[in-house]
Design a protein around this nucleic acid. Structure first.
Lengths: 188, 188
DNA sequence: CCGCTATGAGACACACTTGTACCATAGCAG
DNA sequence: CTGCTATGGTACAAGTGTGTCTCATAGCGG
C-alpha cells in the first residue's frame, strides 16, 4: 500500500479513526462493522491491516503517538512538576478517546512488544514526574506514586465519561480534574 | 430448576462467581470457557441461563444485590455525609470486582429495565449523599455533583486495579481513596 | 431406600466472523 | 491522457460460538 497515494492514506486514516471510535464503545464489533463505520469496503480493511490484532495494534500505536506528541514538548519545557502536570492534563483531555482506548488495552491483552515498550515508557515518565513532585515538596510523600499515576488515569477516564455524557465541556472537566486531584472534593 | 435442590443452587452459585471472575478479565470469553471455569458442563450453564445476555444480566443483578446489601445498612444509620461516605467506600472496596463489573456494563449495553432501575437508584442515592455533603458545608459546592459521583467510581476502579496488581492491600487502597478524594494529592 | 431431577457428555444445525481470492471500476500520479 | 493502483463488491472456505436436544448417570430429598 503506497502511503503517497492519496486514496490509500485517506482509507487508512478513516479506518484508524473509525476503529477507535467504534471499538471504544463496542469492543466486540466485527470487522464488517468497523469497515462500514469507516465508510470503506471490508476488503480494503484487510488490505491495510492483515488481521484484527494488527488493526488494534495500529490504533494503539497511533494513539500512543498522538499523546506522545503533545506530552513530550511539555516535558521538554522543564517546568515545575505542578506546572508540567497541569499542562499535561490540559493537553490530554482533548485526546480522552485515545487515552481511554489505551487504558482498556490491558483488558484485550497487549502482547505486542513495541506497543508495550512505548506504553511502559510513557507510564514511567508520568511516574517520574510524580516522584519529582514529591521531592519538590508539592505532593504528599505518604501516597504511593503508582497509586497517583493510576488515579490520574482514572480521572481522565472520568473526564472521558462526562464528556461522552454531554454533561460538561472540555474546559470544565479539565479544571475539575485539576481541582479534584490537587486538593480533593472537600472545602478548605 | 428447583432452588431448593442443593445441586442446582451450587451450580448456579459456581456459575455466577466464575462468570464474574472470568468475564471481568476476558469479556469475550465463550460460554464453553465460562462453564469450564465454573467446573460445570456447558449444557448445565444453558439450563440455568437461557442465553449469554441472561447470564450477564444475572451477574449484574447479583453484584448489585451484593453492593446494595452492604450499602443500605450504612445509609440507614443516618450519619453525617462524611462518615457515611467513608464507611461506604470502606465497605465497597472488598467488592471491587463486583463494582467494576457494573462499571464496565454500560459498555456492553444494559438494556434490561430491571437492571437499569436498580442501577440508577443506587447512583441516585450516591448523588444525594454528595448533595447532602455540600449542604453540610463539607464538600465544595463548586464541583459538579455528577463529576464527584463519577470520580468516586473511578477511584474504586483505581483501587480494583492496584489490588489486581498486588501492589497494595485492601486497607491501603481504602485509606488512599479517602485521602485522595477528600484532600487531594498535594501537601497542605 | 427409591423416585425424581439435575448433571455431563456428545451430536447437531445455524449464524456469524475471519481471512483469502477474484474482477471490474474509479481515481490518483506522472 | 494513460497506465497503474487502490477500491468495492462478491464469493468462498474454514473455524467458532450459540442454542437445542438426547441419553445415561450421579446425587439429592423424602
Amino acid at each position: 500500500m503506497n502511503p503517497n497515494d492519496a486514496r490509500a492514506s485517506r482509507s487508512r486514516r478513516a479506518l484508524l479513526d473509525a476503529s477507535l471510535e467504534l471499538l471504544l464503545q463496542k469492543p466486540t464489533a466485527s470487522l464488517s462493522e468497523v469497515a462500514a463505520h469507516a465508510g470503506v469496503g471490508r476488503a480494503t480493511l484487510y488490505r491495510h491491516f492483515d488481521t484484527r490484532d494488527k488493526l488494534v495494534c495500529a490504533i494503539t500505536l497511533d494513539s500512543l503517538g498522538a499523546i506522545q506528541s503533545v506530552v513530550q514538548p511539555i516535558l521538554d519545557e522543564e517546568l515545575s512538576a505542578e506546572a508540567t502536570l497541569t499542562r499535561i492534563i490540559g493537553a490530554i483531555v482533548p485526546l480522552a478517546n485515545q487515552y481511554h482506548f489505551l487504558l482498556s488495552l490491558w483488558n484485550i491483552g497487549a502482547d505486542d512488544p513495541q506497543v508495550m515498550e512505548i506504553y511502559n515508557q510513557q507510564l514511567a515518565s508520568l511516574f517520574e514526574l510524580v516522584e519529582r513532585g514529591k521531592s519538590e515538596g508539592w505532593i504528599k510523600p505518604s501516597l504511593n506514586s503508582r497509586w497517583i499515576v493510576t488515579t490520574i488515569d482514572s480521572l481522565i477516564y472520568s473526564a472521558w465519561w462526562m464528556l461522552g455524557q454531554g454533561e460538561m465541556t472540555e474546559d470544565e472537566v479539565t479544571t475539575h480534574i485539576l481541582d479534584t486531584l490537587f486538593s480533593g472534593i472537600t472545602k478548605k
